[in-house]
C-alpha cells in the first residue's frame, strides 16, 4: 500500500490519548511559529523577504482558503466571488482609519462584522439558487464590489486609499515596515483560532448539516435539515474570515486599490481549496501554503511563473483529482467496505 499522508496522520491522531494529542498540536503550533527562523535557508524566496512572504501571500491566503473551505469544501456551495469579503474587510480598515482614530485591533471586529453583514445580505438573496447559478451570481457580486470601489471617489476611486496606519505597538510587539515576523504571528494566531472554530463546528450540528447539504441537498431537506439556514451560516462564516484577512492585509500593506481585489484572487483561493483537498482542513492549509509559496520561490523566472502555476494546476488535478490530502470518503467506505463508521 502506498504511503498515505492523510491516513497516517489520521491514524496517529486517533490512536493518541489526550496528552499525546496536546503534544502533537503543540509541536505543530510551535513549528509554525518558528517558521521565520528558516530565513536564509534553501526555502528562501528571491526578490521578496522570506518572512514577509510568510505573512502575505502565504498567511493571508491560508486564512482565506480556510474560510472559503467552509463554503465550498464543507457545504458544497460554489462561491466565485469570495474576494468581495476580503475587499469589504480591507476597505473597512481603509475608510475607518481615514475618518476615525480607531486602531487596527478596534477596526478588526468592525471589518469582520461588515463582511458578515455583506455575506448575509448576498446569501439571503441568492442562496435559493443552486450550483452554477450561485457561482455566477457570487462572481458578479465580487465584480460589483470592485467596480463600485473603482468608481466611487469617496474611497479614492482607482487610486485607492493610501496611508492606512499600521497596528499600534501591542504587548511590546511593534508593527511597522520592519516587523514582518510580528505580522506573521498575528495572522498565525487568527489561522489557529479559525481552525479551532471550524473543528468545533464540524463536530457539531452545523458541521453535520453542511456535510449533508454537500452530499445531497434534497435529501438533507427531507431529513429536516433547515438547508437555507445552514447554507447562510456557512456563507456568513466564510465571509467573516475573508473580512478579517482583508483588515489585516490593509493594515500591513498600508495601501489598497480596487484592482488588488480582482476576480483572480477568488479563483486563486478556490484553486487552493480544491488543490489541497476540499473539506479537509489540513489539505486546504497544505494546498494554500504550497500554491502561494511556489510562485514566490520561482520568482527568478518571474515572467513564466503564472504559466507554471497553471501547468501545476492541470497536472495535479489530472494526477490527484481529489486534491493532495482529500477528505476521508466516509460515504464510499460505507458502500464499498460494508463498514459504516
Amino acid at each position: 500500500m502506498p504511503f498515505n499522508l492523510r491516513d497516517t496522520g489520521a491514524t496517529l491522531w486517533a490512536n493518541s490519548n489526550k496528552w499525546q494529542r496536546y503534544l502533537i498540536a503543540g509541536v505543530i503550533i510551535v513549528g509554525a511559529f518558528a517558521l521565520p527562523l528558516l530565513e536564509g535557508t534553501f526555502l528562501n524566496t528571491p526578490r521578496t523577504p522570506f518572512v514577509s512572504v510568510l505573512f502575505y501571500p502565504i498567511g493571508v491566503y491560508v486564512l482565506m482558503a480556510l474560510g472559503l473551505n467552509v463554503v465550498v469544501g464543507k457545504s458544497g456551495l460554489l462561491d466565485l466571488g469570495y474576494v468581495a469579503f476580503y475587499a469589504v474587510g480591507a476597505y473597512t480598515a481603509g475608510i475607518l482609519s481615514m475618518h476615525t482614530k480607531l486602531n487596527t485591533w478596534e477596526i478588526l471586529p468592525v471589518g469582520i462584522a461588515l463582511a458578515m453583514l455583506s455575506g448575509f445580505v448576498l446569501g439571503a438573496a441568492v442562496l435559493r439558487l443552486r450550483g452554477d447559478y450561485l457561482a455566477i451570481v457570487t462572481l458578479g457580486f465580487g465584480e460589483i464590489i470592485r467596480i463600485t470601489a473603482l468608481n466611487s471617489s469617496a474611497v479614492g476611486g482607482a487610486n485607492g486609499i493610501s496611508n492606512i496606519p499600521n497596528p499600534p505597538t501591542t504587548f511590546g510587539f511593534t508593527f511597522d515596515l520592519e516587523s514582518d515576523r510580528n505580522y506573521y504571528w498575528v495572522v498565525l494566531i487568527l489561522i489557529i483560532i479559525t481552525i479551532l472554530i471550524i473543528r468545533g463546528l464540524s463536530a457539531r450540528r452545523p458541521g453535520r448539516a453542511w456535510e449533508s447539504i454537500r452530499q445531497d441537498e434534497d435529501v438533507a431537506e427531507l431529513m429536516g435539515v433547515n438547508t437555507y439556514k445552514y447554507k447562510l451560516w456557512a456563507f456568513v462564516f466564510g465571509a467573516s474570515v475573508g473580512g478579517a484577512a482583508g483588515v489585516l492585509f490593509a493594515s500591513k500593506a498600508m495601501f489598497i486599490a480596487p484592482n488588488i481585489f480582482n476576480y483572480n484572487i477568488s479563483i486563486l483561493i478556490l484553486a487552493f481549496v480544491v488543490f489541497g483537498g476540499m473539506g479537509n482542513i489540513w489539505g486546504v492549509v497544505f494546498g494554500a501554503v504550497l500554491l502561494s509559496y511556489i510562485p514566490e520561490r520561482i520568482r527568478f523566472i518571474s515572467e513564466a511563473r503564472m504559466l507554471i502555476f497553471g501547468l501545476v494546476l492541470i497536472i495535479m488535478m489530472n494526477l490527484r483529482p481529489d486534491g493532495l490530502l482529500p477528505r476521508k470518503k466516509r460515504e464510499k467506505i460505507g458502500i464499498a467496505g460494508g463498514e459504516i463508521k
Binding site: 479563483i267 484553486a271 504559466l307 497553471g310 492541470i314 488535478m317 489530472n318
Partner: peptide
Amino acid sequence: RLRSRTSNRLTSLISAIGVSIVLAEA
C-alpha cells in the same frame, strides 16, 4: 481524463482554470 476518474465537477473547473491561465500567460 478527469471525467472518467472523478465525479467531482470542481476538479474539472480547476483544471479548466489551469488551462486558461496557461493560455493567457503564454
